[in-house]
Design a protein around this nucleic acid. Structure first.
Lengths: 346, 346
DNA sequence: CTGTTAGCGCCTTCAT
DNA sequence: ATGAAGGCGCTAACAG
């Protein structure tokens, strides 16, 4: 056997080189040697040759034939947000253990881009789709596609649909945080919310309201501001909250970026945390402990969210049937107590 | 024409429904109507039907036939690092404007995973590969694959190869930062480095050394510590730097995560920045201004790095030839002056 | 134990 | 101005 490296581009070249049929080679390479009782010798030869020529089957062709691309679509609103990048990382790493590659798209908080991205995923024949929807705009589309392939929502979900989701228990997290404020003697508690059309935002706001109600505190609309999860919202809202006669003693910020904005405003205004105002923020980050004031946060279990998402989508895929088993997992959160909340009772 | 929605799964179904040949449908859908002088009427009918049935061509089949998957591979060491997540975002957004989807893989700072990821990209027939290599372990493999498809390195590059790269001008950035320390009267300047096998780290260290040399300051090995870009390295190095008789007056941290580690150590030790020690950190982040001490940073132009990478790879792809035109772009950085450097001259 | 062959969905050459 | 047919690389009946 000449060891001269011919151009081995596909399985046929390899088969010819080995003087075997493509079938045999295919079988060996797909671990079906046993089923067809292919001789050890042949088996070894094939494997060695494949390794020698560094042959890798064309996944496009394989996908076309098998009707399975071994690919998962991932659509998230903003990877540069550390919350989502963490989720993305966990999903990718987990997905690979199941043999999937990730086709990734950043919807940039834009429903139109999201729509395109979903369409693309479909035409690329992903086996499943993991999506953190921007809002509710593409609900119909997502429901439609979920009839063809398994879909799972992460973080942000859409109620009133069959769509499965995995998210944090936002209601309880928010409820607990607000209660914590109240226990520390706060009565004027503001909440800076994110995207109002997102359900996780809604749940957080509900938790906040419920906590107020449970403690016979009136909910006042002037203390609920904000419109997106971004930094600018936090800044604008904080400025607003302090410019007028509102002046809350506590702020619940519904995302890490929002609290960064609050920090910017607070710095500009010369306001002191927790002296003048207390702060609790959603999303623990590696840097939160080292902020100008170490802020008390609500930590979400990003790694578990990612893992569960992949696990569920994988099991839907192998079961081949888009089951309507209800999967709506709300993963518990954890408060990390630091120095941004003042105890008014002392 | 019945508007009953038959199952339109592929181009043949669509053609049959329209009572046209697949050829014609294909041509219209690929914008080649003009070339074949297909009548306006036919054209319109086809487009409408495609939209109506929400038909999307199977990209797997298309890719197989065309030998172009319209897909770019992206392999980076850690998306949860905000520096890389920012790059990833810019790359994805830019790639989409050229019509590429991104197949993304996180090598998790592990050369083995990186190797697998690159192999997978190859078998998925990506049209081009953008990679921030972990170290130099997979140089051979990357060079090999670069003969088959365009490859471009971002951030971390590999010298002594033909591999194209786009990175920050790390040498100058580091040189300038060190000079700044010196100008402020510092003489005992430590440098906490990242992955020593990465060229960008090397360049940064070289810039640091050169600045010392240019100012007749001896480089002393005891002030060069660290071994990875992670947070723990920053912490360990800082502890080490302060525990002994070293006690530098200034620290140059070669990544944002390293400086977070420094901050952790400094907090634990009750050391004051910039009172006891000054700090300059690579990588500007949204939070850096709000850290316990707003830190002076070296900002890299992440959006430009991403854009250029995609631009170059796209042009290599359409030119169809893997040209050996040297592309080694070093993008300028910008220092953002804040309060973490003490002026010893005052 | 191994091989032959059809066909996945698409584009394109050649024919009309 | 439109069609028919071959083939991209792979897997899986079906056939020995």
């Amino acid at each position: 056997m000449r060891s001269k490296k011919k151009e081995i581009q596909n399985i046929r070249d390899l088969a010819e080189h080995l003087e075997l049929s493509v079938t045999t080679v295919s079988r060996v390479l797909n671990g079906k040697a046993k089923n067809y009782r292919i001789s050890k010798k042949t088996c070894e030869k094939v494997k060695q040759a494949a390794a020698h020529f560094n042959y890798q089957p064309n996944k496009l062709a394989r996908g076309l034939k098998m009707d399975r691309s071994e690919t998962l679509g991932l659509v998230i609103p903003d990877v540069s947000n550390p919350f989502f990048s963490s989720i993305a990382k966990n999903i990718e790493v987990q997905a690979r253990t199941y043999g999937y590659s990730i086709i990734f798209s950043d919807s940039d908080e834009d429903p139109l881009k999201e729509k395109d991205a979903i369409g693309l995923m479909h035409s690329r024949k992903v086996d499943g789709l993991i999506i953190a929807p921007v809002g509710k705009e593409n609900t119909r589309l997502i429901e439609e596609i979920s009839k063809a392939i398994p879909v799972i929502l992460v973080d942000r979900y859409i109620p009133g649909t069959h769509l499965k989701y995995i998210t944090s228990n936002n209601f309880i997290a928010s409820y607990d945080a607000t209660c914590f404020f109240i226990r520390k003697g706060h009565k004027k508690i503001a909440c800076i919310q994110g995207l109002t059309s997102s359900q996780s935002n809604f749940d957080r706001v509900e938790g906040y309201k419920k906590a107020l109600a449970d403690h016979k505190l009136n909910f006042n609309n002037k203390w609920l501001t904000g419109s997106s999860f971004g930094e600018q919202t936090g800044y604008d809202s904080a400025i607003d909250l302090f410019s007028e006669d509102k002046k809350p003693t506590a702020i619940l910020a519904l995302s890490n970026q929002i609290s960064l904005g609050v920090l910017r405003a607070v710095k500009e205004l010369g306001i002191n945390i927790p002296g003048d105002v207390s702060l609790i923020s959603f999303d623990e980050q590696p840097y939160t402990a080292f902020l100008s004031v170490p802020v008390t946060t609500i930590e979400q279990d990003k790694s578990r969210i990612g893992q569960e998402a992949v696990r569920h989508i994988h099991s839907s895929i192998i079961r081949k049937n888009i089951d309507y088993e209800k999967v709506n997992i709300q993963i518990g959160t954890r408060m990390i107590y630091r120095d941004s909340v003042k105890d008014l009772c002392k």
